[in-house]
Design a protein around this nucleic acid. Structure first.
Length: 254
DNA sequence: ATGCCTCAGCTCCTGAGA
């Protein structure tokens, strides 16, 4: 079984690239973030023609998440139960017996801002809900755009970016707290090339200079760790014309 | 260097992203 996550930064713009990528990488589950479209615009037919089912949770202009699946997705839940939120950030479903949570974590903009405060509240709510979800589902994957780096290894210039958004101690505390629920950072289970990132700024030749951050993660439970055989960032789509600023992260389970 | 890209939208600028 293969699972992947990709922030596509507008599905309207990126749909051809997503379909090309799926044709070359026939995963069982692809979690998408930043659809930037309402549900009525979601291209279910295009994915169906490629052999995939899809469930989506969209929103105008910003946010929006979806799960593209080979097998049917059941027991779909949108956003974080018990947390009132007007943004479409989370979609959860069961696929092939695995509970899959696809999430677009808040950006937070700047430490001390209202948006940062919302990010902290959102992270606390996610953890509260996930704790109970994990009790019901030993096989669970939480994947998406976390907008948080784990540590210096995830940052192209850790000195210059220390304490800036995605790199603050407050954000990393919440990320470690998710790990403490019994989850594992899939990518770090396997050797990676040095300076492995999942996002590069569009500006100033960020990708060409590998000035990036690793902010897209796939966290898995113990039960799934037992059968994980590979995890990697696929930089290929970042080399496309008009790419997303994020690259897909792919996990393989035996 | 409060910019450099890219995208959406009350679209020829602004807000947001990260």
């Amino acid at each position: 079984m293969k699972l992947a996550t990709w922030n596509v930064n507008s599905l309207s713009v990126r749909l051809p690239q997503v379909l090309d990528w799926l044709a070359a990488n026939p995963v069982d589950v692809l979690a998408l973030q930043e659809l930037k479209m309402t549900d009525d615009k979601f291209p279910h037919d295009a994915f169906a023609a490629a052999g995939y089912s899809s469930v989506c949770f969209g929103q105008k202009t910003y946010n929006g998440v979806a799960l593209i699946t080979r097998a049917a997705a059941t027991d779909v839940v949108k956003n974080i139960p018990g947390f009132d939120d007007d943004m479409a950030r989370v979609i959860t479903a069961t696929v092939n017996g695995v509970r899959v949570v696809g999430a677009y974590f808040p950006n937070g903009q700047e430490p001390g801002s209202d948006k940062f405060e919302y990010k902290m509240e959102w992270l606390a709510a996610l953890r509260r809900w996930l704790k109970t979800e994990l009790e019901a589902h030993p096989q669970l994957v939480l994947m998406g755009d976390y907008n948080i780096t784990f540590d210096e290894a995830d940052v192209w210039d850790p000195v210059a970016l220390e304490g800036t958004i995605h790199c603050t101690e407050e954000e990393r505390y919440h990320l470690r707290a998710l790990i403490a629920l019994g989850l594992h950072d899939s990518l770090r289970l396997f050797p990676q090339p040095p300076k492995t990132y999942s996002w590069w700024d569009y500006r100033d030749f960020g990708f060409r200079r590998n000035r990036g951050l690793r902010i897209d993660h796939i966290l898995i439970t113990d039960a799934l760790k037992q059968c994980a055989t590979a995890c990697e960032v696929d930089k290929t789509p970042r080399k496309n014309e008009r790419p997303s600023d994020h690259a897909p992260v792919v996990l393989t389970l035996s």
